[in-house]
Nucleic acid binder design. Structure first.
Lengths: 187, 187
DNA sequence: TTGCCGGGCTAATAGCGTTAGCTTTTGAGC
DNA sequence: GCTCAAAAGCTAACGCTATTAGCCCGGCAA
């Protein structure tokens, strides 16, 4: 019979991501990944140290995915236009892949495996705020405010926390404008 | 021998909250709750329908707890002072009880059991914005922006997502000021 | 006193992550 | 092309989880 191609860590993570997208975080189980990759559950341990490590790998993929999207969005833009585009791209990503976003680590810098991917994503956010003349800690604070708005809104929206979805676009536009006004207002 | 007092749903939830505070969400297991209440695991089902329902009850408690704290904070204040106090109380609560906050439902209005508690908490936020002359949907948007800032910052901070904790107070102050400026800026 | 029923119990099941140990397959060196 | 070691699969098993079924005791009502 046809020999199936050997399994790799990357393929395991692929399967995990599919499962995550389709059925949510609770469905991301080693048994399910094994079934999808056509292998017995314990065999996965040849490619992944534990469920926790698999989750960490998934987190890295999500961070990379976001970095790619946001980089493409911001490229060729600057100033208010870039910031607004970034914020809208952030929200759009979470709407398209809610489970994926929920699986993204909030503190990637504290994990050996995720540190590099986290750093790159942060750099995109940081770079988008270039051109506002922010120096030193002011740039750090501004990046944090950006994250607070993007993550705050997206996480509440994606969990249905806003009650009725009515007027959510307006709410987000107001947040974007608030942030831009704030950026311009303080040196 | 001394008859131990009978178990009630409230006591089960009490034990669950203790466990949550002390050891985090993953430690909130029926076995652990049973051990703490001095009962066999299946006996819990006489007071709680499932682990999911227990979690929902815990969520209600957290919402009520927050409502109480925030109400006390806002009472006797108004305008910018009230809003700033509320935002700082929000952050303080999450810092004091990170696991508890993480167990709070983000969409309480969509759950029969949690709806009332969620409504009350929202009313406190809503009422705090009284006096800014916001009418109709403008008040809704403003409340949403408030939530985005409070939840966004608190959830990132409590999961260590800001990297170094340096200057976090300043970042938060800037967010508070940004929100207040925004409130005053638009009618 | 009788009987009911609420709230405890034990036993059992299915599913999970994980480990141990065996077998098969693969690929590199002679 | 053969050999042999390492990589990668497998089955069996363990302990933990939530959950269900069924029994039993003790208090309260008729």
């Amino acid at each position: 019979m046809a020999v199936r191609p050997r399994l790799t860590t990357a393929k395991v993570v692929d399967a995990a991501l599919e499962l995550l997208d389709e059925q949510g975080a609770d469905a991301l189980t080693l048994a399910a990944v094994a079934a999808r990759t056509g292998v017995a559950t314990p065999s996965l341990y040849k490619h992944v140290a534990s469920l926790g490590e698999l989750r960490a790998h998934v987190g890295v993929r999500v961070l990379e995915d976001m970095t790619e999207r946001f980089t493409a969005t911001v490229l060729g833009r600057s100033g208010d236009e870039a910031v607004a585009a970034l914020l809208h791209a952030y929200r759009a990503y979470v709407r398209e892949h809610p489970h994926r976003y929920a699986a993204a680590p909030m503190d990637p810098l504290h994990d050996e495996l995720q540190q590099a991917a986290g750093q790159k994503l942060m750099e995109v956010l940081f770079a988008t705020l270039r051109g506002y003349g922010l120096e030193g800690s002011a740039a750090v604070h501004a990046t944090r405010r950006l994250r607070v708005i993007a993550h705050g809104f997206a996480s509440i929206e994606s969990s249905g926390g806003f009650g009725l979805p009515e007027g959510l676009d307006d709410t987000y536009d107001q947040l974007v404008r608030m942030f831009l006004d704030d950026l311009r207002g303080k040196s």
